[in-house]
């Protein structure tokens, strides 16, 4: 999760994934590790409890490249992942002020 240089930020196109998971101690490690092991930098992460508390929703901002569809299919195979969807970057744009301070 290295910070990218501003110039690089502009060059790279981004994707935000919304991932619904069953909540337990290892699930973040399963999901995020899948990206890091494939040398794919996770630029932003948000995780919140969802619904009955046995589920969580994770948002990940990653580089959008031709390998991303294959990565998404690998994420979908994780036992604790219920669904993966691409969504707009709005959620991280609204949070970007937190990192500035």
């Amino acid at each position: 999760m290295n910070a990218s240089l501003p110039a690089e930020n502009q060059r790279l196109s981004r994707a935000v994934l919304r991932i619904d998971v069953t909540d337990h101690a290892g699930v973040m490690s399963h999901v995020v590790g899948l990206f890091s092991r494939r040398a794919c930098n996770v630029e932003a992460i948000l995780c919140l409890p969802a619904g009955d508390g046995r589920h969580s929703r994770i948002w990940l901002q990653v580089e959008d490249n031709p390998r991303l569809p294959a990565m998404i299919r690998q994420v979908e195979k994780l036992i604790d992942v219920q669904s993966v969807a691409r969504c707009d970057a709005g959620i991280f744009e609204r949070l970007s002020g937190l990192a500035a301070g």
């Binding site: 101690a25 290892g26 490690s29 590790g33």
Partner: peptide
Amino acid sequence: TYGLSIPITKHNFL
């Protein structure tokens, strides 16, 4: 063991 086995298992449990 849980952390070590994540990338080499289909799934793992603690």
